[in-house]
Design a binder for these strands. Structure first.
Lengths: 171, 171
DNA sequence: TATTGTTATACTCTATAACTATA
DNA sequence: TATAGTTATAGAGTATAACAATA
């Protein structure tokens, strides 16, 4: 089987141009590629294409869990910040509180989170995971480890380190 | 004044925690941040947040040009691959040909592109920029230089280099 | 039979305005 | 007056199915 990319530190095989590999984390290059010129050096383009590749792999890895990227991050932040307000969780994730309502509704419908009473502010909800939510997130944590490990194996630890170091500057 | 980010190689101003800076390329951190734990080290999250920051700055930089990120990349690829089929342009950008039709319609409505006759295939359109499209893209090229330069100044040339080097592995 | 461009359609994500109950 | 949660709504972006013309 022909493969496509250069070996990373560990033991990554090369990806061939024509090898159709629907399960591969990294996409196949088209046989007759167009001239992209400097497009791959433009930050927005490079970040967007990479983000889409990672989200597609995320979808495959989390198909059995039933969580999309934003849902996973929301539950993850709730787990580490139990009792916080709905709007605080939303703000931490860069989601507008108005769009976060339906996500919370679905979590509650699936029995993953609980809108508790806030002690000091009767307008606010104190958000927390239910036992079922904790259990699902435990499974999801195992899955995310596999998911993240995949990128280290594919790209190399050093490349992932310098990537994340720079991406942190955006946050 | 409390600050947020380390100076880049050149001469980057420091961002204060409370200083409200609506024009700043990088977002302000919330005063009372939640515990994100390992979230910023997850590839999908880190890439998505960075991509959004870059696209927001793109929107500000290109407000006068009237091009969104996907539109700019489409025109850019058309410029470097005149005479190619609509579906080839779309495929190169990871856009489905069915969703690319309306984008091409808008380009034509604005007089930026031309659906020419393909010499060898009467089903296909040979896409190219009009003079007006070339002119707009010349302006856009100046703007993208400023836009890209901003990230180098903010993040440092070395960080941008290692970022792009790794992001290229996704393409 | 397969491909090119197209329409129609649906679903997600995101953005804004406005309401209510509290603060 | 401002904030927390909510509803309604509109706009992007993206995905699939189906069609006519052509290969």
């Amino acid at each position: 089987m022909t493969t496509r990319r250069q070996k990373a530190s560990a033991g990554m095989a090369r990806r061939g141009v024509k090898a159709s590999s629907p399960d591969a984390a990294l996409p196949d290059r088209p046989v007759q590629a167009l001239d992209l010129n400097r497009l791959p050096t433009f930050m927005g383009y490079a970040l967007r294409r990479a983000q889409l590749v990672v989200f597609e792999q995320f979808a495959r890895d989390f198909a059995g869990i039933g969580l999309r990227p934003a849902q996973f991050t929301a539950l993850y932040v709730i787990q580490h910040n139990p009792g916080r307000k709905q709007s605080e969780i939303a703000a931490a994730l860069g989601i507008q509180r108005t769009n976060f309502v339906s996500m919370m509704d679905e979590f509650e419908r699936r029995g993953l989170t609980h809108r508790g009473k806030s002690a000091d502010d009767r307008r606010a909800h104190a958000i927390s995971l239910t036992d079922k939510g904790e259990k699902l997130l435990k499974k999801a944590t195992t899955t995310i480890e596999v998911h993240e490990r995949r990128w280290i194996d594919l790209l190399g630890q050093d490349n992932v380190d310098c990537l994340l170091k720079t991406l942190r500057m955006f946050m």
